[in-house]
Design a protein around this nucleic acid. Structure first.
Lengths: 240, 240
DNA sequence: ACCGTTATGTACGTTAGCTGACATAATGTT
DNA sequence: AACATTATGTCAGCTAACGTACATAACGGT
């Protein structure tokens, strides 16, 4: 396993969609995939365009955003090594209305969409995993509908930071207020107020695009309940 | 086709997930399904509980809502005869975090979850259709995230009315301000202001739970662009 | 004809987040 | 050392929607 998914630096890394695959099925995926390094804000695909590749993130983290009225963006899902970027290909569509881009740079197993489509009929276990991931994504997105409608920016910001921390696995990671604003669908100035509130409460520390979670427990309390709901669903997914 | 799906009143009605099935596969679905009449606000299933049945709506319309903080609700998807209520069963989960209940009473083909699971491996065309519907639902929900974050209640109300009208196929249908408030995640009083604005503009007419779309074109202009985006996706789904 | 129930209208004070604008501070570049 | 660039802080005025509360109106049953 670790050998097959060794990343560019030679470190073992894992994607949970591929983890339970029998060796034969895993080999088929790896045969057509390529481990690539994705850089910050690099798009995986653009809205409306045919999807050229799907991504199984290894250390990279992607954001799926919806854009309204041409400019305003809101994140609809975050995808790390627990899932796949490009579900629409799995679901039989050739295009997608969401944009996906890299939130935290890192490595990702990139598979051409055509190869991926060809490979699906031969990999039942992968289909099963992806179906469960689709369900988790639906729940994540559904919760975001309610969360964005009901909760304050401060609570949502706390939740969003926890989501990223879960996926990077470290307490320090790249995050600017500008980016957080794009994710939450609010102005950067509003993020500034929410963030400095969290900072003065001793929950986080940040400077020029580097975010550190200081008091994880406290941040969980500052976040809305949506965090725990979605987290539970993804914990279950990872444990399958 | 019309014979197999004749509803309780003997009228032909159709569910687009079943429409393209070859006779053999359709028969298997109908063998285990039962056409039932669902009444207003009747739940298809509750959050967190095992899903006992899935529904292929015929003339009924269902709402999927997310609940936060125990009371506040927001709609995450509307499902009429273009889809299935109970996607989580299709996706391999036994429970769901969303609640689903009947928005517009009517008839629905109800299939026990266990039978549905058993039937899936034998009905590839149904799986294909449901995968496409899953994609459309993801897009609908993703758009709702952005819409609820970015748009005014008035525009969202207009959009929501159009969505229901599309599914009932008539310009008059049941809709109270209370219900609309639950869907939009806002107070009833806020809906009252938005609705009377739309009414005085000559776009709709309503009284005691009966809504009539008077100026369809005008209502489309009053709605946010999210309507057209989601509508296009579902038009494509129906035409497959 | 009456009355309880349900649907809708409205109003006042409050607040979160917006628009728009500008200020400060840290970093990299030359 | 000077400067451009990028990240962050802040402020004054505005608006949509909120919480709360109460009023009106239409319908259904007895």
């Amino acid at each position: 396993m670790s050998a097959q998914l060794a990343n560019l630096a030679g470190q073992a890394s894992v994607n949970f969609m591929l983890l339970p695959l029998p060796g034969e099925q895993l080999r088929r995926v790896l045969d057509v995939g390529e481990v690539v390094r994705v850089t910050s804000l690099e798009p995986a695909f653009a809205a409306g365009e045919p999807v050229a590749h799907v991504h199984f993130p290894l250390t990279a983290i992607f954001s799926l955003v919806a854009r309204v009225d041409g400019h305003k963006t809101v994140e609809v899902a975050t995808v790390g090594n627990e899932g796949l970027v490009g579900l629409s290909v799995f679901l039989g569509a050739s295009t997608t209305l969401n944009e996906a881009f890299c939130q935290v740079p890192g490595e990702s197993l990139r598979v051409p969409a055509a190869d991926f489509r060809r490979l699906l009929p031969e990999t039942p276990m992968l289909r099963r995993q992806l179906a469960r991931f689709t369900q988790a994504t639906l729940i994540q997105t559904a919760q975001a509908v309610a969360c964005n409608t009901a909760h304050t920016v401060s609570k949502r910001a706390a939740r969003r930071l926890l989501m990223t921390q879960d996926r990077v696995g470290k307490d320090t990671f790249p995050m600017t207020q500008e980016f957080l604003g794009l994710m939450l669908g609010v102005r950067r100035a509003t993020v500034s107020e929410a963030a400095s509130e969290l900072q003065s409460g001793g929950l986080i520390r940040y400077s020029r695009g580097v975010m550190t979670v200081v008091d994880r427990r406290g941040l969980e309390e500052a976040a809305c309940s949506c965090y725990a709901v979605v987290r539970a669903e993804f914990d279950e997914l990872r444990s399958l």
